[in-house]
Simulated assay, not measured.
Amino acid sequence: MPERPEIVCICGSMRFTDDMRAVSQSLTLAGVIVLMPAEIDVPITDDQKAALGELHLRRIDVADRVVVVNRGEHFGESTMREIAYARAAGKPVTFASPAWGSL
């Protein structure tokens, strides 16, 4: 195992939470530190939503790379912003789905 495990930030629509969990599990079992969006199951304000979005960008800051989880559907505004942010920061961005079997 390397001196410091790789850190991966998972991005994607919260509609794919189950897929994100599956990708997180696979990466974790492979020895990767996984950062992903928090699952909030209560109503939140617009200010809280904005703050959570900024917090997720900080996750991207500390990650070595980003894995975007989706099912080949159109990316939402938040996910597009996260992809652009990661690329601007020089982070490798890959796309995955448990159904594809690729991470």
Rank of each mutant, 00 (worst) to 15 (best):
L52M: 15
R15K: 14
Y85E: 01
G12L: 02
F75W: 11
I40A: 04
D18Y: 01
A88T: 13
V8Q: 06
G53W: 09
D18L: 13
S26Y: 03
R81M: 10
T28G: 07
P98K: 08
G31V: 07
S78W: 10
A99Y: 07
R59V: 01
L103S: 03
V68S: 00
R65C: 05
Q48D: 13
T94M: 11
A89T: 01
T28F: 14
M14G: 02
L35C: 13
L27D: 05
V8T: 12
H56L: 05
R71D: 15
V69C: 05
A30C: 08
L52Y: 14
C11L: 09
K91D: 09
I10T: 04
E77N: 12
A51I: 01
F16V: 03
T17N: 00
L55G: 07
R81K: 15
D46K: 14
A38Y: 05
I44Q: 06
I7M: 12
V34I: 06
W100V: 04
E77G: 04
I33C: 10
V34L: 08
T28K: 11
L52P: 00
P37Q: 08
D61M: 08
D64P: 04
T79S: 03
Q25A: 14
A50I: 11
D19S: 12
P5K: 11
A99T: 13
V69N: 07
G76M: 05
E73W: 02
I83N: 02
I33G: 00
P92I: 07
A84L: 11
D61T: 07
S97G: 10
T28S: 15
I60N: 01
S78M: 12
L52N: 10
A63L: 12
L55C: 09
D47L: 15
I33H: 11
L103H: 02
R58M: 13
S13A: 03
L29K: 11
A84V: 06
P92T: 04
K91P: 09
M36G: 00
Y85L: 00
E54W: 07
V23H: 09
V62A: 13
D61L: 10
E6N: 03
S24W: 01
D47G: 06
V32T: 15
A22I: 00
A88C: 08
T45I: 05
V42M: 10
P2D: 09
E54V: 07
